[in-house]
Design a protein around this nucleic acid. Structure first.
Lengths: 155, 155
DNA sequence: ATATAGAGGACTAAAATGGTCCTCAATGCC
DNA sequence: GGCATTGAGGACCATTTTAGTCCTCTATAT
């Protein structure tokens, strides 16, 4: 599996929706209608995205949400991290991870490298890519040319 | 997050342990002792790995578990799939996924491509890599040279 | 025959997740 | 200034998932 939570999924859909009309502010209710999801849930998701710094908000009439930076500057990693926290496949790949078996389990190091690989991959996918509607299922060239774990292991 | 379940984590640890002594059969109890995890839980994990075809088992005295193929032929994807099912970041990336919003959500296609990227990365990490004990934290060259999403989009 | 060891599944407890709602605060408009 | 609009923040509950345990049955070696 390795599945995203539903909220993360919603977050991506909503972010993409905003990214398609970045010039104007989007009210939570409008977004919920547009993406066909329950209002309270979308609202909750939006708040998390603001808290994470991916969106800015303005209250009151004519208020709503806007991207805090260009779609090409917001990554899949960012969106996932906003809802679920930083990408980490194992406890010990987290910054604050505490697993007393790290030293004895024998695979911790390598899982951490794999996590870095996944993170790098997700860093290279931006909201600009995600938002691109591709109803024709044409192969889209995403800018992932090379992911070499060895090169990242020093991090 | 995007975290592996604990059982998957255990599975990797146990598989690595077996991979370090592939010639002999390992009893569940011995493995549990070796990796310092509760016996029943390790036992459950082993059964799942057998069911998925990654291990073979033999009952009775002198029985136990063995790898069903070489460590270099067993991938991280295989281990994850054995416990959690195939790697899929979204509902719609699963073979049997049913999400009525696929057509309208606008990001389904691209998440599916990202899933393929992650899957490819995890396919390229083998049990042989995972089992390699690296207490010195030397950078390990894993054979992930290039992951290009466009090349996979036809799948 | 018997001790060993896995298969299979039922079951429970605990935790994470999803989803809703309520009250408060800010903003724009008249 | 007053009011309608819209987000902030958090409490709360229901459901699902996960983890973990245990019991009974079956196969194998000696």
């Amino acid at each position: 599996m390795l599945k995203l939570s539903k909220l993360t999924d919603y977050a991506a859909v909503v972010m993409a929706q905003i990214a398609r009309h970045p010039e104007r502010a989007h009210a939570a209710a409008d977004l919920a209608d547009a993406v066909q999801l329950p209002h309270p849930t979308v609202s909750k998701t939006l708040k998390m995205l603001v808290k994470a710094g991916l969106l800015t908000s303005r209250r009151g009439a004519q208020g709503g949400y806007r991207l805090s930076r260009a779609p090409s500057e917001i990554t899949a990693s960012d969106i996932i991290a906003a809802i679920e926290g930083p990408v980490a496949m194992t406890e010990c790949s987290q910054a604050d991870g505490d697993c007393d078996l790290v030293s004895s389990c024998g695979v911790a190091d390598n899982w951490q490298r794999v996590t870095l690989g996944v993170r790098t991959l997700l860093d290279s996918v931006t909201l600009a890519h995600l938002a691109r509607a591709e109803p024709l299922k044409l192969p889209v060239q995403l800018p992932i040319q090379s992911v070499t774990l060895a090169a990242m292991a020093e991090g």
